[in-house]
Structure formats: structure tokens, C-alpha cells
């Protein structure tokens, strides 16, 4: 009888059980899809399930858009002050700096994009909602100046709730300031591209966001002059589905393309090459 008896060995797991600590899981804010963080990160922080574009930091955009090792951050020493002695502003600035870094709401950089030299401004929503004050205006102004001097294209990635209230009318005037710089670029035929990410509203949308030689938007980004809450308030009724999304703006002729973050770099580089008379980065391609 014993010939078919199986010898009992202690059960050995085939391999070490994959231990996944709870904190590597991430849940998509839009669809609830849960996946390991690495998958989100490798997918440019876009949900692998529903394509929801998560908010990322300014430095992440530089990593996505600029060729490895070519990024040079500019205008590092410029800081916001409290020109109006506005209540609680110094404290808010301090907190924002602690949370989001010293760069204020805009990271200014120079680098190569598919071997093409560019100047890149990226707004950082983490710094006081990406609000535009004197520093943001001045940094874009200087990037524009650099573009004028070197004849390098300018790209600005927008993410902002609008002008920074705490700097009052000085913030408002940054709209005019940046627009004046962009007019100079236009006259010298230096390409400028605006990329609108979630959200792009208020004073930023009503100035450099809408002045690109090409305007691209990330899928699902909320883009508009007045925020949805304000419009709801003035109208006293609910807003239609999809109102003020990137796709809505595309339908209404306000942006050139809605581009997945994965394709952003190549699309930008293609556009810049068309506009500056440079050959294609990949040589001749079909279609």
C-alpha cells in the first residue's frame, strides 16, 4: 500500500511571496482604478485605466520634456516679496516655499528637446495654486528675453488659478507684461507654444495661455476665464457636462490639439521644427 503513498514534505512556497507594502498602491482620483505606483509613474502619471492626467510637479515636466542631462534651471534667486503688506501673505509665502520649494509658481529652464534648444517655463500648481505674481511675470519675461537673444523657441506649461490676489494690481499687470514680451517674440518670428494643464484659468488663461503660435492642452484639463464656480454663481444653474474641459475648448476652436502627456514632447518638438524651418528629428517618415 505504501507504494503510492506520497512522502509528506513540508510545503515550500515556490518563491518568496511578493510582499507589496500598502503604500506603493495608488488609486486613480477619477475612476478609482488601483494599481502600483510604479505603473502610474511609468505612464507619465496618467491613469493606465482611464487616461486621467494627474497633476505633476514642474520638475516632472522638465524630466518628461527635456533630453536627459540637458536641463539647466534659470533665475534661481528671484523671490516674491510682500509689496502691498497684504494680510497673511508673508506667512503664506513661507508655507508655500516649505511645501513646494523656492522657485515660486514657475520653474524656468533651458534645455534640449529632441536635440532642439528651447526655453521652458513650467508653472507649479503646488505653489499657491500656481498663482501669477510679480515673480512669475518676471521669470517668463526673462525667459522670453533669453529666447529673443538666442532665437530659441519658448514653451510655457500653464497650471494656474489666475493672478495672485496678494500682490493686487501688480499681479494684474503681469498679464500685460508677459503679453508684451510675447509680442516681441512674434515680431522676431520666434515660436512660442502654450501647453494648458489642469487648471488654467483667470489671468493666466487671459494672457500667455491663449497667445501661443500653437496651443496644446492635456486631456480633461479645466481651462477657462472664469472658474466654473463663479459661472455657476452668476447663472444660478448647473453647467453642462464637460464645460470648460480641454476637449470643450478643442470643439470651440480655442486650442489646436488635446495631447496625451506621453506624446507631448514629440508633438512639441514636431511643431517647433515646422515653425523654425528645421528638419524632422527622425528624418523622413511616412504619413
Amino acid at each position: 500500500m505504501a507504494w503510492f503513498r506520497k512522502e509528506k514534505k513540508p510545503r515550500q512556497p515556490r518563491r518568496e511571496r511578493l510582499e507589496i507594502p500598502a503604500d506603493v498602491w495608488e488609486k486613480c482620483e477619477a475612476c478609482g482604478h488601483t494599481d502600483i505606483r510604479e505603473k502610474f509613474v511609468r505612464n507619465f502619471n496618467v491613469c493606465p485605466n482611464c487616461d486621467y492626467h494627474r497633476r505633476i510637479r514642474a520638475s516632472d515636466y522638465c524630466g518628461i520634456l527635456l533630453d536627459d542631462g540637458t536641463m539647466e534651471e534659470l533665475e534661481l534667486d528671484i523671490r516674491s516679496i510682500d509689496p502691498l503688506s497684504f494680510p497673511e501673505y508673508p506667512a503664506r509665502l513661507k508655507k508655500a516655499t516649505a511645501n513646494a520649494g523656492e522657485g515660486d509658481a514657475l520653474l524656468a529652464a533651458a534645455g534640449m528637446m529632441e536635440s532642439l534648444p528651447v526655453n521652458l517655463g513650467v508653472m507649479d500648481f503646488a505653489f499657491m495654486g500656481g498663482s501669477m505674481g510679480s515673480v512669475v511675470g518676471e521669470k517668463i519675461g526673462r525667459l522670453g528675453q533669453r529666447s529673443l537673444e538666442r532665437k530659441h523657441p519658448l514653451i510655457v506649461i500653464c497650471a494656474s488659478g489666475g493672478a495672485r490676489m496678494q500682490e493686487g494690481v501688480l499681479s494684474l499687470m503681469q498679464m500685460a507684461k508677459v503679453s508684451a514680451v510675447l509680442a516681441q517674440l512674434a515680431e522676431r518670428r520666434i515660436p512660442y507654444i502654450a501647453v494648458l494643464t489642469n487648471p488654467t484659468t483667470g489671468g493666466v488663461s487671459a494672457s500667455y495661455a491663449m497667445l501661443g503660435d500653437a496651443i496644446l492642452a492635456e486631456p480633461g484639463a479645466v481651462i477657462g476665464f472664469a472658474g466654473p464656480r463663479v459661472i455657476k454663481q452668476t447663472l444660478g444653474q448647473d453647467l453642462p457636462d464637460g464645460f470648460q474641459t480641454a476637449e470643450f475648448l478643442l470643439d470651440h476652436g480655442m486650442v489646436d490639439q488635446v495631447v496625451h502627456r506621453r506624446d507631448l514632447k514629440h508633438t512639441l518638438s514636431q511643431l517647433l521644427r515646422h515653425m523654425s524651418g528645421k528638419p524632422s528629428a527622425t528624418g523622413w517618415t511616412a504619413s
Binding site: 498679464m175 487671459a206 497667445l211 472664469a226 459661472i231 453647467l239 470648460q244 470651440h252
Partner: peptide, 24 residues
């Protein structure tokens, strides 16, 4: 500037931005 559906659909932001640009 007016905040409303039609204003947004027809590009309130673009209209203002264009004026700043051209006036400069």
C-alpha cells in the same frame, strides 16, 4: 469681463489676451 457660458464658449480669455498682445 462677463463670466458666462457664451463668453467662455467664444473665448473670453483669448479675446482679452489678444487685446493685451496687440495693444502692446
Amino acid at each position: 469681463a462677463w463670466a458666462g457660458l457664451g463668453a467662455e464658449e467664444r473665448g473670453q480669455s483669448e479675446a482679452i489676451a489678444r487685446n493685451l498682445f496687440e495693444m502692446s
